[in-house]
Write a protein that binds this DNA or RNA. Structure first.
Lengths: 242, 242
DNA sequence: TAGTGGTCTAGACCACGTG
DNA sequence: ACGTGGTCTAGACCACTAT
């Protein structure tokens, strides 16, 4: 069953690829159960153990979620476990909580060279820019500027945004069919500057974290760039070095 | 083979625990090969598949390193892959490189309440404090203050430190029998202040990353606390959100 | 009771590294 | 040629969830 290609690809990886294809083509939607291991084994004409190993890897990569006795489900951005996967700010005291979001604006624009490169677009392509402030306990803590490819998010506007209950990535997944898989962040320390200082109610020379994020969907496609400024007087950015 | 405890523990996890014990007791030292899967299966009187699953998890947690055709080896801090596991500073331009370390001092002291709590010691217990500056291309970039429990690192001194070639965690692993498994970091933005500013050759109000790290050895024992100040004019802190 | 994922086994064979 | 880890299979049984 080796395809005799220059790089050997075991059977379970090929099965994994087939399942991934079904995920990308939304054959099973977020939150839905996929067929049982036995069904998949019959479909692909391999043993259950081979399907199992494929699913194991997909579950480890958080594409799927296994629940003993119930089935295997397509991962979602509204599971309790996924809630803080992309928000690493922790309060100095007390429990982690979800911030309140205040939308500043949501407008269409054209990609600059820099943005185009990050999102793998052409300079001048249509994009959507969102600006917002996140607050914890009425204290403005994060200012974010978010850049999205226009082709995917053309219909996004302030109303949709304000009416939606839940996290932004849940909105993207539910309403725009774009699921964020992973992200890379670059973190720097900067002085607030006048504009950000006013939004976060701090002095202009207050040190802030500047967090640049590129988020990727299926197939390593970059589908979001955002720059966030984080106050770290009452919070810190938590990280785990494995 | 179920121990009928309130929580069910599968056989392969028990085997995993036994292998972990052998790692902690240094039955096989860092870099050495552990017995083959077949040997371990005979020793523990289980099938090779069960040993395999135990080793799979230990390899995923980076305790072990599998090499097809050669064997399974105890992980080390001098593998190429481990080099930058605990150093997340990336240059804005060019390749990632290992910094030059300049030791400021290495002295014995007594733990304050705060340090004692972080290292799970009693206030007043003996500790070792290291202060150093890391430079990239002759540019001082990081100032670090490192706190270690005296019981483990009593013999550490400036000479050992200066003579040693290789990373600090490699030194700890090789000379002091303490292997760092994982770490938690808290990142904040702060102004440099006069002391740090002088060491890093920046102005006193320069925003810096302040990185607090607690590193853990086997059994979730905290064995290092360090506070680092990072310049981010030529570098950034990279992070991956999985 | 039935269906799902989870564990364990035994055996065959493949890919890789070293003699 | 041999020993290592890596893959694949088939079957039995266990644990969890729902009906």
């Amino acid at each position: 069953m080796n395809n005799s290609a220059p790089t050997f690809s075991p059977l379970y990886r090929q099965i994994k690829g087939l399942i991934m294809q079904s995920l990308e083509s939304a054959e099973w939607g977020p939150g839905e159960a996929i067929p049982s291991e036995i069904e998949l084994a019959l479909r692909y004409k391999v043993s259950q153990g081979t399907v199992r190993k494929a699913i194991d890897e997909l579950a480890a990569e958080k594409h799927l979620l296994r629940r003993q006795g119930k089935g295997t489900f397509v991962a979602t951005h509204d599971e309790a476990r996924a809630q803080f996967r992309f928000l690493r700010l922790m309060p100095e005291v007390g429990q982690q909580e979800w911030p309140a979001s205040r939308l500043l604006d949501c407008k269409r624009a054209r990609a600059s060279g820099e943005i185009a490169q990050l999102l793998e677009l052409k300079a001048g392509d249509g994009i959507v820019i969102i600006r917002r402030v996140l607050s914890f306990a009425d204290e403005p803590t994060v200012f974010e500027q978010i850049y999205l490819p226009g082709t995917l998010f053309h219909e996004l506007n302030a109303e949709i945004f304000n009416e939606y209950k839940g996290s932004m990535y849940k909105l993207f997944e539910t309403e725009f069919g774009t699921r964020m898989i992973r992200a890379e962040e670059k973190i720097r320390a900067v002085a607030a500057g006048p504009a950000v200082a006013e939004l976060l109610r701090v002095s202009t020379d207050t040190p802030l974290l500047c967090v640049d994020r590129v988020a990727f969907s299926y197939g390593e496609r970059p589908v979001e760039y955002r720059r966030g400024y984080y106050r770290t007087d009452q919070h810190y950015y938590r990280n785990e070095l494995g």
